[in-house]
Design a protein around this nucleic acid. Structure first.
Length: 233
DNA sequence: AAGGAGACCAACCGCGTCTCT
DNA sequence: TAGAGACGCGGTTGGTCTCCT
């Protein structure tokens, strides 16, 4: 592995390029003993010929035990889209809301899927999804509120009527392709349900459902005007 | 089967901010 | 308070993998 891929050492003597398992072990042991931080001391204490910067990056992005491995889930994509709409390219801020994911990972994912130029359409679609979702969420909340108020007005509601109302609302939510379902008596995120039920294929099916939508902002019938969310790419 | 394109990922770089002396 | 070093962040690059033609 030493010096492969044409990587070598920098002018100031630091090794560069892919990390070897031995280097990973040294760094992991060092962090176990001394904790994170003081990255510039690592080379002196472990004999690693890596800069502090490189050590920190390797630990944060790859060796940290709490890292979540595997593909970004549809639920995480939703969060990323929402937070990116809010904060733009502040990857580390976004990463804080996704336990186990690194800023680098999220940044790479974003660039791959929503990079400027190649997938402006994707980004529009994603934004449309998010805006539509927000809009429908508000609508549903309002309707729920109205339903609750109506129920409070009625002292007694026959059970079959309650069921009919719940069914109607569920159908409505489904027709809107909303990411929420009725789970027991609660309205919860579909992802939460599928995670609870351990049905990963549901995630895929659900995500496909979103992906196959051919929305545009115009289709939403929303006059976003000045409220247009900022998108940076 | 081979080659090209795109997806994915690890790692580097530059720069701004923070902290310590 | 100022300067130096440490740290963190975002942008970019380049290698590998996978899929499609």
């Amino acid at each position: 592995m030493e010096g492969h891929y044409g990587w070598g050492t920098s002018e100031d003597g630091w090794r560069k390029g892919p990390w070897t398992p031995q280097e990973d072990n040294l760094l992991t042991e060092h962090v176990k003993l001394h904790g994170e931080g003081r990255w510039n001391c690592v080379s002196r204490l472990t004999g690693l010929m890596r800069s502090g910067k490189s050590c920190r990056l390797r630990w944060v992005n790859y060796l940290r035990p709490d890292l979540k491995r595997g593909k970004i889930t549809p639920h995480e994509v939703t969060i990323i889209l929402e937070l990116h709409a809010k904060w733009g390219n502040r990857w580390s801020t976004i990463a804080r809301s996704l336990p186990g994911r690194t800023d680098n990972e999220i940044k790479n994912y974003w660039r791959t899927h929503f990079k400027k130029g190649r997938s402006t359409k994707n980004i529009e679609k994603a934004r449309a999804k998010f805006l539509k979702q927000q809009h429908e969420q508000k609508q549903l909340q309002q309707q729920l509120l109205q339903q609750q108020q109506q129920q409070q007005l009625r002292l007694e509601v026959p059970q079959f009527e309650e069921r009919a109302v719940a069914q109607e609302m569920q159908e409505m939510a489904y027709m809107c392709n909303m990411p929420y379902v009725f789970h027991g008596e609660e309205i919860v995120d579909k992802m939460t349900v599928s995670r609870c039920d351990d049905r990963s294929s549901d995630d895929e099916a659900y995500f496909d459902m979103w992906e196959n939508q051919q929305w545009s902002l115009d289709d939403l019938g929303l006059d976003m005007g000045d409220q247009m969310l900022p998108f940076y790419y």
